[in-house]
């Protein structure tokens, strides 16, 4: 006869596992979007214009533990060469040494270090790396469903050594991540 204690523990373990397990999701790059806006004053122009752009090539992983948010984490990796502002010449310039230096630093990354729940949102603290410079930032993640949500935050590009044309091309960049996860 089997050990009844072993059987009980096994049954309890199998039943309880889904309740405590975190969801591990890949970022669905087809449905997700990483976009940015920046104010730019072209040479000889009198006023600033908003330039909107996005990154087409990115990937990432989300570990989402609803029961215990502190065990959640997120990692995003963006290929900076995929920058797209609907202006090929401008994109070429953005890829180059004055801005993203894609030949030297092909990726920018975000890795969370701490996740906590704040009301219906989640506060995510993590390390944002751009041009080989890493800074800790805190962003607010607004979930829209079990597997999707939105993050908006602002960085100062000069904090990462991207100082070209500041302030005629603004130092502040507004970044939005609309993330949709998919199960592995």
């Amino acid at each position: 006869m089997k050990n009844p204690l072993f059987t009980l523990v096994t049954i309890l373990g199998l039943t309880a596992a889904p309740l405590f397990a975190a969801d591990v999701l890949d970022i669905d790059s087809e449905k997700s979007k990483i976009s940015f806006t920046i104010q730019n004053k072209p040479p000889r122009a009198k006023e600033f214009q908003e330039v909107a752009g996005s990154f087409k090539d990115f990937s990432g992983k989300i570990v989402f533990d609803k029961a215990n948010p502190s065990k959640s984490s997120v990692e995003v990796e963006v290929k900076t060469a995929s920058v797209d502002t609907a202006n090929e010449k401008r994109d070429d310039h953005l890829r180059n040494q004055d801005f993203f230096k894609v030949k030297e630093f092909p990726k920018m990354t975000f890795k969370s270090t701490k996740v906590s729940k704040k009301g219906s949102d989640y506060e995510v603290e993590g390390k944002f790396t751009l041009l080989d410079k890493t800074k800790t930032i805190t962003v607010s993640f607004k979930p829209s469903s079990e597997s999707s949500g939105k993050v908006s935050f602002q960085i100062k590009r000069s904090d990462y050594g991207m100082t070209y044309r500041v302030p005629d091309t603004a130092d502040e960049v507004d970044i939005t991540l609309e993330i949709v996860g998919k199960t592995k």
């Binding site: 890829r95 180059n96 040494q97 004055d98 070209y164």
Partner: peptide
């Protein structure tokens, strides 16, 4: 030629070089 190289570098996306 130094000034011309400066022009090429600036047009090539590296103002600082």
């Amino acid at each position: 030629p130094s000034i011309a190289l400066a022009v090429l570098l600036q047009l090539g996306g590296s103002a600082r070089f």
